[in-house]
Computed example of a mutant assay.
Amino acid sequence: MPELVSIQVGLPQTLGTDAAPNPMDQRWTTGFFKQPVEGEVWLSTTNLAGDGQADLKNHGGIDKAVLAYSAEHYPDWRSHLNHPELPYGGFGENFTVVGQTEADVCIGDIYAIGNARVQVSQPRQPCWKLSRRWRIADLALQVKANGRSGWYFRVLQEGAVQAGLAITLCDRPYPQWTVARANHIMHHDLSDRAAAAELARCPLLSRNWQEKLLKRGAPS
């Protein structure tokens, strides 16, 4: 049974300085730094209590209320990045889960976590802030290449959640659209316009991804 093993939240903060010669040290504002929380946390339709995003154009909102990431990826990342202490939340996720990866989770899946209900809306598309957080210039590109992206939830029913709760599948309307397959179409099958158009027609895929895929699938 999949399980929520850790919850992380964090509010935006400004780091660095404008005068820094190294771009990695220059001023930036981010909500990427998440800290684990104990006990119950209220999950609303837009985010977890105590959590926030700095860039509301590209992060947060109804379709990206919560970011989930598989704990099963951490051993490989810790070895590959030579960072044995890489903590849960290290990829900016709110929910660290066991028993699930991108190959197991599908667009539109509805899960019960305590008395909350969440639905998978899209894969996570890593941005430059992941690279900046760990000072590894190509880390976001590595995530796109290997597909260990995580996925976003929209919240269908608000409720209290906490680490240790089971993640129970309630409905799977689109078993053909795993997060792994959606990632592959978005990042690797760039010339397959038919596949892009087909995925874009999935009504439970986030609007942002639908729009991007429709542009690719449109006749030239």
Rank of each mutant, 00 (worst) to 15 (best):
L81G: 02
G99W: 05
T96E: 07
Y88C: 11
E85K: 15
G99M: 05
G89H: 01
L86Y: 10
V105D: 08
E93M: 03
Y88V: 06
D76F: 10
E72N: 11
H83K: 15
A103N: 14
W77L: 11
E72G: 10
T96H: 07
L81N: 02
P75K: 13
E72H: 12
R78I: 05
G99L: 05
V105H: 10
A71D: 11
A71P: 02
G90Q: 00
E102S: 04
D104C: 09
T96V: 08
T101F: 01
Y88T: 14
V105S: 10
E93K: 02
E102M: 01
D104G: 09
T101G: 11
V97D: 00
P84L: 09
N82C: 09
G108A: 04
N82F: 08
D76P: 01
Y74A: 06
S70E: 08
E102Y: 01
S79C: 12
I107E: 02
E72W: 06
L86E: 10
N82H: 14
L86A: 12
P87Q: 08
E85P: 01
Y74M: 05
S79K: 15
V98G: 03
H73K: 08
V98D: 10
A103G: 10
V98N: 13
D104S: 13
H73F: 10
F95Y: 11
G92V: 06
L86D: 07
P87G: 03
P75Q: 14
C106L: 00
V98K: 15
H83Y: 13
G89F: 02
G108Y: 06
G108M: 05
D76Y: 12
D76K: 12
Y74S: 07
G108R: 05
E85A: 14
L81Y: 07
W77Y: 12
D76I: 06
Y74T: 06
V97L: 14
A103T: 14
H80G: 11
L81T: 03
G99P: 01
Q100P: 01
H80Y: 13
L81M: 13
H83V: 07
N94L: 03
W77S: 06
E102T: 03
H80W: 13
P84R: 11
S79A: 15
V97S: 09
H83E: 13
D104F: 08
Y74I: 05
E102C: 04
I107A: 04
G92N: 06
E72D: 15
T96S: 15
W77K: 09
P84K: 10
R78D: 08
I107D: 00
E85M: 11
C106H: 08
H83P: 01
N94D: 11
C106Y: 00
E102R: 00
G108T: 08
V97E: 06
I107T: 07
V105F: 13
G92K: 03
V97P: 02
G108C: 07
G89M: 02
G92H: 05
F91H: 03
A71W: 00
G99D: 02
H73V: 07
R78M: 05
D104N: 14
V98Q: 14
P87C: 08
D104Q: 11
S70C: 10
F95A: 03
V98R: 15
E72S: 14
S70G: 13
T101W: 04
G92E: 00
N82R: 15
E102Q: 07
E93Y: 02
P84N: 11
